[in-house]
């Protein structure tokens, strides 16, 4: 079981390594002192990368204890695999790649314990924003339909925008948030998510649709409508 997972998670690990997070790496961070063995002091890893990995895990697992565990497992796995990998890719993105697999492990375990389909959430699908009867049934009520978003490009460079984004995604129900972060933040394909969580594609699509709807509405209310 364990072994078959490692094969299945291969593409995730590769994506983790190739992700452009390398570009944003702190340029002043120390590099491997000894590239021939590729291993530097593992305790320095904790100092250099501990906070980032913890934030990364917390954003996805939404629980401090779980995030700590994932970070610890990541460093332990890195210690074991260090000699094989550290020389080949940069330290941080390599560690993030391992952490991504640990997070997937967690979701896989969680999906075995309880069903991962959470369709009860937002059953109304913004029912209050659509006309409920008559010839225009199912159409946006024009006064409260989507408003025009100004300065979307500038928002991307604003730290407060990302705080709002994070606050809004934190309001999503746990399972929906897990599906959403895997898909949108980490770019995991739909098929991989379905296999990971044991859900059907149509369930995945409904959950993503509802997550997008809720997130759009929250960001409109808390960011774009306020910007004006």
């Amino acid at each position: 079981m364990r072994f078959s997972f490692r094969i299945g998670a291969g593409p995730l690990l590769i994506r983790g390594i190739l992700k452009p997070s390398v570009q944003t790496e702190n340029p002043s961070a120390p590099t491997d002192e000894n590239p021939s063995t590729g291993l530097s002091d593992p305790e320095r890893w904790v100092e250099t990368h501990g906070d980032y990995l913890f934030k990364f895990a917390l954003l996805r697992l939404r629980d401090a204890a779980r995030a700590e565990d994932a970070v610890q497992e990541t460093f332990l796995a890195a210690l074991k695999g260090g000699r094989t990998f550290a020389g080949r890719s940069q330290e941080k993105s390599w560690l993030v790649g391992i952490l991504k697999n640990k997070i997937c492990d967690h979701f896989r375990k969680a999906s075995r314990e309880t069903s991962f389909t959470d369709l009860g959430f937002y059953a109304e699908e913004e029912g209050d924003r659509f006309v409920t009867e008559g010839a225009h049934e199912g159409h946006w009520i024009s006064e409260i339909g989507p408003c025009e978003w100004q300065k979307t490009g500038e928002s991307l460079d604003n730290e407060r925008f990302w705080q709002t984004y994070r606050d809004c995604s934190a309001k999503l129900p746990e399972k929906v948030a897990a599906v959403f972060t895997l898909r949108e933040l980490d770019g995991v394909t739909g098929k991989e998510i379905c296999a990971l969580l044991g859900i059907s594609e149509s369930n995945l699509w409904v959950m993503l649709h509802r997550a997008r709807m809720a997130l759009r509405r929250c960001l409109e209310a808390n960011w774009f409508a306020k910007e004006k």
Binding site: S21, F54, K55, W162, Q163, D186
Partner: peptide, 14 residues
């Protein structure tokens, strides 16, 4: 911008 989102998590490793 997944890195921006990760970066704005306020908590650090305890």
């Amino acid at each position: 911008h997944s890195d921006d989102l990760t970066g704005c998590v306020p908590q650090n490793l305890p």
